[in-house]
């Protein structure tokens, strides 16, 4: 166990965390403003990844792929919002869970229909591949550093958008009192479509960025979706700041737990048992973290309302 390994794992955890934040930010916005649980957010992540893989394979340009991921996911989000989601705002959570579960089925099987069951590949562009030498002589993949940077920039951008712009004021007002801002002349249903498309675009971006280090396949969205739910529940539903803190906590716990828990158990038992007990505890660790947070604070770290 060396310092280099620890730093590498912390960076991996950060990278996983900021990508989770992209997913969680959209989810938490959509829940905070519209009061909607969107299980189909993982499908938008998948749409982004497939769009990026298809376009960059056709054009050879990774950046074009990213742009099309953003556009495809935002478009899919806007269409779904106008056709289905809009009718669910007034329903109870049960109907929302069921309807968005149905959307997952449609998106997943539809994509399988179009692209088949085999994974697609999205290549990292040449100018981002290979390692970068960090201060202290640690070699770390450039692409993963870029992911961390993109995640942090998007987080900053979201903060500016919500705290410093007119649209952000409307979003925050919509969170507090939708009748009042409708009465003040804001077109509330356009605002909702816009927020949904924004959340979808962030999910699509995350899908495309992560798709380049994993494979692009049907069903890739659901594990991330569940992690993103864990994140927003830990952070407090509706809070962007909570989503950021929660995402980093979950990313770091997941990554570091997988490495250090088996090591920790080696102090108590023989290596084989330590490996298996440690590995199973590690895969459960974020859910244990989440239940501990909820038992301690039933509305999450930054959540205000139940």
């Amino acid at each position: 166990m060396s310092a280099v390994l620890v730093i590498e794992q912390v960076l991996n955890g950060l990278q996983a965390g900021v990508m989770l934040f992209l997913m969680a930010a959209g989810l938490t916005l959509i829940f905070g403003v519209m009061g909607l649980i969107n299980l189909a957010h993982g499908s938008l992540y998948m749409v982004g990844a497939f769009a990026a893989a298809a376009v960059s394979a056709a054009t050879g340009s990774f950046l074009l792929g990213l742009v099309s991921a953003l556009a495809a996911a935002a478009l899919a989000g806007a269409v779904v919002e106008m056709l289905v989601i809009r009718r669910l705002y007034a329903s109870d959570h049960l109907d929302q869970v069921l309807a968005t579960f149905a959307l997952i089925l449609i998106f997943s099987e539809g994509t399988r229909w179009l692209y088949g069951s085999f994974p697609l590949y999205l290549d990292i562009p040449a100018w981002l591949s290979g390692p970068t030498r960090l201060p202290g002589g640690i070699l770390y993949p450039t692409y993963r550093l870029a992911l961390i940077a993109v995640g942090l920039v998007v987080a900053l951008g979201l903060w500016v958008l919500i705290e410093r712009t007119r649209l952000g004021i409307r979003i925050r007002a919509g969170e507090n009192d939708r009748e009042m801002i409708a009465a003040l002349g804001v077109d509330i249903s356009r605002l909702y479509t816009l927020i949904f498309a924004l959340g979808a675009a962030l999910a699509g971006l995350a899908g495309a960025l992560v798709g380049a280090i994993q494979s692009v396949q049907v069903g890739m969205g659901e594990p991330v979706l569940i992690l993103a739910f864990v994140v927003i529940v830990i952070g407090g539903i509706g809070s962007i700041r909570g989503a950021f803190v929660g995402a980093l906590l979950v990313g770091l716990t997941d990554t570091l737990g997988g490495i250090f828990l088996p090591e920790l158990f080696k102090f108590f038992t023989d290596p084989a048992t330590a490996q298996s007990v440690g590995a199973s505890l590690a895969s459960m660790s974020i859910y244990i973290l989440m239940s501990l947070v909820l038992i301690w604070r039933p509305t999450g770290l930054f959540g205000a309302r139940a």
């Binding site: 739910f229 864990v230 859910y287 039933p298 509305t299």
Partner: peptide
């Protein structure tokens, strides 16, 4: 544990317990 929460949090914490058991079974 879960009934300390309500609404969406209840949905999510029960989901989390499900995942906990799932991963436990996978690695058992």
């Amino acid at each position: 544990l879960s009934l300390r929460t309500s609404g969406v949090y209840f949905i999510m914490i029960t989901l989390a317990f499900g995942q906990m058991f799932f991963y436990f079974a996978v690695s058992w």
